[in-house]
Simulated scan of single mutants.
Amino acid sequence: MMKDAVALPALGDWLIPDWQPHPSVRACVTTRAGTLSPPPWRGFNLGANCGDEPERVEQARRHVHRLLGTPHPPTWLRQVHGVALVPAGHADAEADGVWTDKAGWPCAVLTADCLPVLLARCDGQAVAAVHAGWRGLQAGIIERAVAQLAPDGEPLSAWLGPAISQPCYQVGRDVYEAFVGSDPAAAAGFEPDGTPEHWHLSLTGLAGQRLERAGVTDVSGGEQCTASDPSRFYSYRYEGQTGRFASLVWLDASAD
């Protein structure tokens, strides 16, 4: 019996941000388009730690590299909800952010509700991709990335990728106190949900607040909700066991 043919996505199936901080900066977000992985990862899963067959994940990652057409493959991290950043090329490093000041080295983070933050120097000299779940956000992953890219206060631009929206993201007192206990202004990112000890958290709102404090005022994106669009994006809150999609940023040498 013949197996069904596998359909791999085209670049046109992915989200291309309306974000151009510099002519050399390129970015994209993969989606579930395709039939490489069966349920529960249904579509095009790039996550290596969510139960999918490693061979399928590697095939998907190679396909991403082919479509990007960059000299070097994306740097895939082992994300741990921390604040470590590594230079592009440190594949399989335990970190939640990756940066580069060299052309042709895509920086990638994987998400399925957490917030992907793409950063670029406005002079086109460096870019970074950050995985900002609530733990990493609260611990300062965004501030670490800003300091890495702009040590002397160079102008930066940020784009916020698809993540779970505030109406879909209920959290408990532990999360509320983790933020507000050390930063009372973070209360602006929480809305009571009408039940005791629970709030709705805005990852994009808190990320924007922290970016502004770090001196990044050129911030865009943040409109797509993963939990509200599970046919396009993976959502852990909506599905439980599921895959991961990638947000990528890189410098294109041909634009110099």
Rank of each mutant, 00 (worst) to 15 (best):
M2I: 14
A10E: 13
I16F: 09
I16P: 02
P17A: 12
D18F: 03
Q20C: 09
R26H: 02
C28H: 00
V29H: 12
V29F: 09
T30H: 04
R32N: 03
G34D: 01
T35G: 06
W41T: 05
W41M: 03
R42N: 14
F44K: 07
G47M: 07
N49G: 01
D52R: 04
L67S: 13
L68D: 02
G69F: 06
G69N: 10
P71E: 11
H72Y: 11
H72G: 00
P74Y: 05
P74A: 08
L77S: 10
V86R: 12
P87T: 11
A88Y: 02
G89N: 03
G89F: 09
G89D: 01
H90D: 13
A91P: 01
T100P: 10
A103N: 07
L110W: 06
A112L: 05
R121E: 01
C122D: 02
G124K: 09
Q138E: 14
G140W: 11
G140H: 10
E143G: 11
E143Y: 02
E143N: 05
V146A: 06
A150L: 10
P155H: 11
L160V: 11
I164M: 10
S165Y: 00
R173A: 14
R173N: 08
V175I: 15
E177D: 15
G181W: 10
S182V: 12
S182L: 09
D183A: 11
P184V: 07
A185R: 14
A188K: 04
G194E: 08
E197V: 06
H198W: 06
W199K: 06
L201C: 10
L201D: 09
S202F: 10
T204C: 12
L206R: 02
Q209G: 04
Q209M: 15
R210I: 06
L211V: 06
E212N: 14
R213K: 13
R213I: 04
V216R: 10
T217N: 02
D218L: 11
V219K: 04
V219G: 09
G222H: 03
C225M: 12
T226G: 08
S228D: 14
D229M: 04
R232E: 07
G240F: 09
G240A: 08
S254A: 15
A255D: 05
